[in-house]
Design a protein around this nucleic acid. Structure first.
Lengths: 217, 217, 217, 217
DNA sequence: AATGAATGAGCATTCATTCAT
DNA sequence: TATGAATGAATGCTCATTCAT
């Protein structure tokens, strides 16, 4: 099976931190054990995939980390690829939901750009020590590609809407440029051990000002 | 062995197109068959790795594509990983050499930014149908990581120098922001089948103007 | 990695015959399928290694002979080398346990020497048609070497104790000489197709008498 | 190809030390370059096979050690197996020739036994630091097996003749027992780093006396 | 005769997935 | 539901041997 092609970079766009989730209490009538297990497996998958990459992570490891048997993973996810996709989906959704939420509470244009930049960079900052990113995806799986496209599109659209609300022409090109800046600063976070919250704020401010006013000569 | 971690995105930064390379002419007193074979294998590796990714590409495929036996690959490269690294190195070098060369011939600031943007986007545009990108690297190999860092650093430094020659403050942050814009436009190229040279030029102009003047409200 | 060096001859010292082992009876409350499989694989490994040698025996063959899948072998033994070592260990242990046991039941010196000689030669006689010996070991594996040394030492010590119990000087040199005789008669067994139990008994008697009285001129 | 079976232990019986052999002078009319090369390759094969074993030694290494090209090895020996066999043959011959020669010059029975023991043990003592033994042969090659048998037979016959010259009954059984003692002392030489010439002489004397008089109680 | 680049058969090992319990 | 023992396809790499020069 040789599929089309696939992206992956953007996988790194969306993360969230989950803690290994013990089932503290299961009342007799309490259900959702299975729903919980589903999530715990997803958490473990996220933790390991993001730490070691898709190929380097073994199903056995995910199962062990989740505290279930290998076979159980297959009760909830039909394949390793499917598990990876679900994980990606969930992370993207959470990323976008969070951003969407924050934007609602913003008023001015500058404030909105600030929220976007801060959300983007903080997202990666928060997990910088916790996990390592993976720039890896399912290069030959068209379905995965589609999921990725859809999510990136959604993100850019969100930013594009902000642009349009300010009556900016070429709103999409503007949106992509802004997101691009942030993506590149993300690298600083991920690869600079000494990166601090101050550095982050500096970059947020810098990106917004540069985007609004251009470079200062 | 779990190494640090590694990036890969930027692998996609540098490409170049090579054609399966027959030895058209051999001067009387020299034959560099072996050097040629080295390059042909590298070309095939580039083509396949970039089309399918590291893990999805088999040494047997590279050998077949290069028209040599499996064992021959190992005559020139000690391992699959090493082959991948060599390929990455070569591509980066060519990308940077080309850019470096073009910048020398540029005069004004806008012109230089233009060259950078054009070089970056054209690079990927030229291979858009030819190969597919991979956003994949050797996530656990510290040596590969170092090579990647080194190359990204070199690219950013080249752009940073341009900023400094214009006495721009925070030259590095500016440089990274600009490269980030381009990287994001690269996505358009790679994932939009109907992308034309006109679209490319439009983005080059747009990126330069946005960077210099900020968004036009 | 070039380790010290290793012996192997003596590997041939210890053998035992095992038959492909079906689980005839399983008590109601226990099944040691996994322990059985471990032993069945060991049996097959013994049969094949001793028939064809370490390098000539393929894991696939061992698996097939044991009636399991290739992967199953690795469930019980971490590598081909490890399997070989385990097999060697087991054979030596059984050889020594058997001898140890027989010596306890012997009384006079001559009787003890007889038991040693008989045990040694019978051991190989019993498997003379069944398997063929291998004079091969893991020449570069220090761990294997150590195991071998340890076992040979144990064998010689057992014989040395017998010498000492008779207040013989230079007990160790005596022990080694006696074992040496037997080892050389072993060759007759292994390479003479017409070798019979009578021949064996003749050699047992001969070795004991020669050792006790010297050559008869 | 699954042959009968094969021995190897005894391979270790016969060794000799050769020094890497430069062709100091080749007069114009002097031939035998090719004969020399044949021997140099055999020397290298001996050195490496005995140091590392058959499977662990690569043809490329032998060629390099001999200072010739890989292909050249095949001009003189049709295969790796053949090279191994030739080497074994040569070593055995030299061992036997040496012994044969020494026996001619001996008179009394004790003296002859002494010569045998000394020749046997000295042989291995002389190369104890120089090379390491290999207990490895071509386990599946019937031709190799035959060569080995033939040589062992010759050695035992030589010793048997000594026994017969003394009118000893069961001369062959006596001969094998004596050789067996020596073989086992050989182990001491090979595996005891602190083994000295004195230890050797002690063992020679001990073996002869034990063989002639039996154990001293 | 001598070379050494090229070959490709051969094999240990891994790991996603299944299924009997 | 949950388990984990068993499976076997899949692949990177080695190295004896060949052959054009």
């Amino acid at each position: 099976m040789v599929y089309y092609k696939l992206t992956a970079v953007v996988t790194a766009l969306c993360y969230n931190i989950r803690i290994y989730n013990y089932n503290i209490f299961n009342g007799d009538f309490m259900t959702s054990t299975s729903e919980q297990k589903h999530d715990i497996i997803l958490d473990s998958a996220f933790y390991l995939f993001s730490t070691k990459g898709f190929y380097e992570t073994k199903i056995a490891e995910i199962a062990e980390h989740a505290g279930v048997a290998k076979g159980t993973v297959y009760l909830y996810f039909s394949s390793k690829e499917e598990l990876f996709k679900e994980m990606t989906r969930r992370n993207f959704d959470e990323f976008l939901d969070g951003l969407s939420n924050e934007l609602t509470r913003s008023s001015s244009f500058a404030e909105k750009l600030n929220k976007i930049a801060d959300h983007h960079l903080s997202y990666f900052y928060n997990m910088r020590n916790h996990t390592r990113i993976f720039f890896q995806g399912l290069n030959n799986d068209p379905e995965f590609m589609e999921v990725m496209f859809h999510h990136i599109e959604n993100y850019v659209n969100l930013v594009t809407n902000v642009m349009e609300s300010e009556s900016i022409n070429e709103s999409k090109l503007h949106a992509k440029a802004f997101v691009g800046m942030l993506e590149n600063y993300k690298m600083d976070i991920l690869f600079t051990k000494s990166f601090t919250k101050d550095h982050l704020n500096q970059r947020v401010d810098f990106a917004v000002k540069l985007f609004m006013n251009g470079c200062k000569r």
